[in-house]
Simulated scan of single mutants.
Amino acid sequence: MTKLDHAFAEIASADVDPDADFSLPGWIYHDREFFDLEMERVIRPSWQIVCHVSEVAEPGDYRTIDYLGESVIVIRGDDGEVRAFTNVCRHRAMRLVEGPAGCAKKLVCPYHAWTFESDGRLSGVPMKSEYPALKLEVNGLVPVALEVWHGFIFVRLTDAGFPSVGEMMAPFEDEVAQYRFEDMRPMGEVRYRPRGVNWKNVGDNYSDNLHIPVAHGGLTRLVGKTYRIEAHGWADRLYGDVVKGDKQNFWEKFYRTHMPRVDHLPEEAHGRWLYYKLWPNMAFDIYADQIDFMQWLPISPTECLLREVAYCLPDSRREMKLVRYANWRINRVVNAEDTWLISRVQQGMQSRTYGTGPIGKSEVCLRSFAKKIRALIPEARQPFPPAPGWSQGQR
């Protein structure tokens, strides 16, 4: 068995985690060696959301995502199939397209005009006779693994045995299906928000249940004491139900009292704020009025980029538009509070005095994530960093 085979066996075992009562150590939130190794073992093999199928509806429509020094293009072919390729010309490595979206019948390299079809085939090379070793059939675009789940398109750079998105979300299939993700459309363009924190810091905060009543006054007024978290293997489920409260502000009361009926949803879904965090760095915020996705893409040991956009079902009702605005007003406050929190935690993680902290029994999502990281990179069990060079030979 390889090291990763052993790691997956350990993740699957409920009994193997002697450090279960302790957090991940602070040094792995800013250490360059650890960052480089976890990019190979955690991020490169993991699924990353790109867009919705409706955003590449016609042949030639494409969307891109850039991370870990790679640019990936998702494009619909003339045959109607959606495929993913690295956004790299096979001649001199020129990037074929720029920007997050576009439409092209053919992908023509802006450097030397090599031409690729929307299915990745190399079909045109100026002065072809100049290249005696060239074989068109073996120089098409390099494919990238792609998965479509409930209308959303995901890619991953390498395969290391992590489950598919469908497998991660299988325990929640019935709950997700009722929201009709496939029929949704984007409410705007993708937003990018840089953050000066390690990527894990964002995910930890997302799954943390104990900070809600302490740091999120508005969210607490909205859902009261109903907020719950659950760890389910490779995905976390979190939720709270909107309650009646005399201390709620204008927008909180407005959302609670004016949410219109959505006929295909059960009654309890109308007031439920439902969240899913998928391994290792993606989340869906699901409401009766809309859904938001967010992912936190690593940039450096102390930097990441939030990539997010909201989707909804077409609904021209005035009250639905106003409820969606109220949703935004409430959540922009929550986001600002979280930004302040994670920036201060990042500063603390970089203190030489911080090793690990205790984890409460109720912090099941943090426990689940920490177990996976420790299994994939055993050095994460050490409260303080090993001697420099510890990661040599592990990648």
Results as ranks from 00 to 15, higher is better:
Ile73Gln: 09
Ile73Glu: 08
Ile73His: 05
Ile73Leu: 15
Ile73Pro: 07
Val74Glu: 04
Val74Ser: 05
Ile75Asn: 07
Ile75Glu: 07
Ile75Gln: 07
Arg76Tyr: 09
Arg76Val: 06
Arg76Ala: 01
Arg76Ser: 08
Arg76Ile: 07
Arg76Thr: 05
Gly77Ile: 04
Gly77His: 05
Gly77Met: 07
Gly77Tyr: 05
Asp78Asn: 14
Asp78Cys: 06
Asp78His: 14
Asp78Ile: 06
Asp78Val: 10
Asp78Pro: 02
Asp78Ser: 12
Asp78Trp: 06
Asp78Ala: 14
Asp78Thr: 12
Asp79Tyr: 09
Asp79Glu: 10
Asp79Pro: 04
Gly80Leu: 02
Gly80Pro: 08
Glu81Thr: 14
Glu81Met: 11
Val82Asn: 01
Arg83Asp: 05
Arg83Val: 08
Ala84Leu: 11
Ala84Gly: 14
Phe85Ile: 02
Phe85Val: 01
Phe85Arg: 00
Phe85Leu: 03
Phe85Ser: 00
Phe85Lys: 02
Thr86Met: 10
Thr86Trp: 11
Thr86Leu: 13
Asn87Leu: 05
Asn87Trp: 02
Cys89His: 03
Arg90Ile: 01
His91Thr: 09
His91Leu: 07
His91Tyr: 12
His91Val: 09
His91Asp: 10
His91Phe: 10
His91Glu: 07
Arg92His: 14
Arg92Asn: 13
Arg92Trp: 09
Arg92Val: 09
Ala93Pro: 09
Ala93Arg: 15
Met94Arg: 15
Arg95Tyr: 01
Arg95Val: 06
Leu96Cys: 00
Leu96Lys: 01
Leu96Asp: 00
Leu96Glu: 01
Val97Thr: 02
Val97Asn: 00
Glu98Ala: 14
Glu98Phe: 11
Glu98Asp: 15
Glu98Arg: 14
Gly99Phe: 13
Gly99Thr: 09
Gly99Asn: 08
Gly99Gln: 10
Gly99Leu: 10
Pro100Trp: 04
Pro100Val: 01
Pro100Gly: 03
Pro100Asp: 07
Ala101Val: 09
Ala101Asp: 12
Ala101Cys: 13
Ala101Ile: 07
Cys103Ile: 06
Cys103Gln: 13
Cys103Tyr: 06
Ala104Phe: 09
Ala104Leu: 13
Ala104Gln: 15
Ala104Val: 11
Lys105Trp: 02
Lys105Met: 08
Lys106Thr: 15
Lys106Asn: 14
Lys106Glu: 14
Leu107Ile: 14
Leu107Ser: 03
Leu107Val: 10
Val108Leu: 11
Val108Cys: 11
Val108Lys: 14
Cys109Val: 08
Cys109Met: 12
Pro110Tyr: 00
Pro110Thr: 01
Tyr111Val: 00
Tyr111Asn: 00
Tyr111Met: 00
Tyr111Thr: 00
His112Thr: 07
His112Trp: 11
His112Val: 08
His112Ile: 05
His112Asp: 09
Ala113Leu: 12
Ala113Trp: 08
Ala113Tyr: 12
Ala113Pro: 06
Trp114His: 01
Thr115His: 07
Thr115Ile: 12
Thr115Trp: 08
Phe116Trp: 11
Phe116Ser: 04
Phe116Thr: 08
Phe116Gly: 02
Phe116Gln: 06
Phe116Asp: 03
Glu117Gly: 13
Glu117Arg: 13
Glu117Pro: 01
Ser118Cys: 15
Ser118Trp: 04
Asp119Arg: 01
Asp119Tyr: 01
Asp119Trp: 00
Asp119Ala: 05
Asp119Leu: 03
